[in-house]
């Protein structure tokens, strides 16, 4: 039981403390590529802090659903973060079948984000909502296929065990499958967190955005919570990718945690590099790429099935 409380403490610390850092690393990487200095690493911390102290402007057409969006958007990644191991630190909560709960938790946040966007009655935010729900609908099978591969390799249905000790051994026996699902999981991470090449968070044109356009009308603490929630979500998905990429342990807990943090920062750098060298895909290509990712993950599963 003491382990679990320690794990809980570490999870919360990492989630609350480190998640906004990733955005800073991504921003710095992108700035480096364009030859600028870029915002400081801690920019998102400052932004969130500033937003939490500000007043709010709310559209007259909105109802409680609009206010529920940010609340759910913060609570869901928080709870989802407790279901997965952060590197060597095991998940504080784990039970057989929690992977299904994990997937549907994010569906919950999507549900409320989309409804909150539609609540403003703006056509642009409606557009964002449509794209969000449609694209994630195609990404969901990929997540399940990835999880089945891991479940098959580990023989367990809890995320803690699937991303747990057996993963390192599985890399010896089923490297091709794991490599493929690593790619797929990374693609899912990019889609779910609205990064280039699926969504451009920094564009100035509402027509081309997905996630950012949905939260146009949020302001003040609400918007701060959305930013914090999005950062946590990136951290949660990033933790899965990093765990898949760096499954081993050195035996030393502190070193392992440092390794994990290093890994997740490295992932942020990779995301930054991708954002610098790629353009956003045409909207029609996105479903194709998502279906492609699903099929790739399905194929990796077939490699194990035979």
């Amino acid at each position: 039981m003491r382990i679990t409380i320690l794990q809980l403490f570490l999870h919360l610390l990492l989630l609350f403390g480190f998640s906004p850092l990733l955005s800073g690393v991504i921003g710095k990487t992108k700035a480096l590529f364009t030859g600028r200095v870029g915002p400081p690493f801690l920019q998102l911390y400052f932004d969130i802090w500033k937003l939490f102290g500000k007043g709010m402007v709310i559209s007259r057409t909105t109802t409680w659903i609009f206010r529920a969006g940010p609340v759910v958007g913060l609570a869901v990644p928080l709870l989802a973060g407790l279901l997965i191991p952060f590197g060597p630190v095991g998940a504080p909560i784990s039970f057989s079948g929690d992977l299904i709960f994990f997937v549907y938790l994010f569906a919950l946040s999507r549900f409320f984000t989309a409804c909150a966007a539609l609540d403003t009655g703006s056509s642009f935010e409606g557009m964002g909502a449509v794209r969000e729900v449609t694209f994630s609908c195609l990404a969901e099978p990929t997540v399940f296929f990835v999880f089945i591969v891991l479940a098959r390799l580990s023989g367990s249905f809890s995320l803690d065990a699937m991303f747990g000790q057996t993963l390192a051994a599985s890399w010896h026996t089923a490297a091709p499958s794991l490599l493929l699902i690593l790619v797929c999981l990374f693609i899912v991470t990019l889609v779910e967190n609205c990064r280039i090449p699926f969504d451009d968070p920094t564009t100035h044109l509402e027509l081309t955005m997905i996630h950012e356009v949905m939260v146009l009308d949020h302001s003040g603490p609400d918007f701060g919570m959305i930013l914090y929630g999005a950062a946590m979500k990136l951290f949660v998905f990033g933790a899965l990718v990093v765990r898949l990429f760096l499954p081993g342990t050195t035996g030393n807990m502190a070193l392992d945690i440092l390794l994990f943090i290093g890994g997740i920062l490295f992932m942020a750098v990779v995301v930054g590099v991708i954002e610098s060298v790629m353009a956003r895909l045409r909207l029609l290509r996105i479903p194709q790429l998502l279906v492609g990712a699903s099929l790739l993950s399905f194929f990796s599963l077939i490699l194990l099935l035979r």
Partner: peptide
């Protein structure tokens, strides 16, 4: 194509 590939593996 993926289904055919899966089929051929199985």
């Amino acid at each position: 194509g993926t289904l055919a590939t899966a089929g051929s593996f199985i």
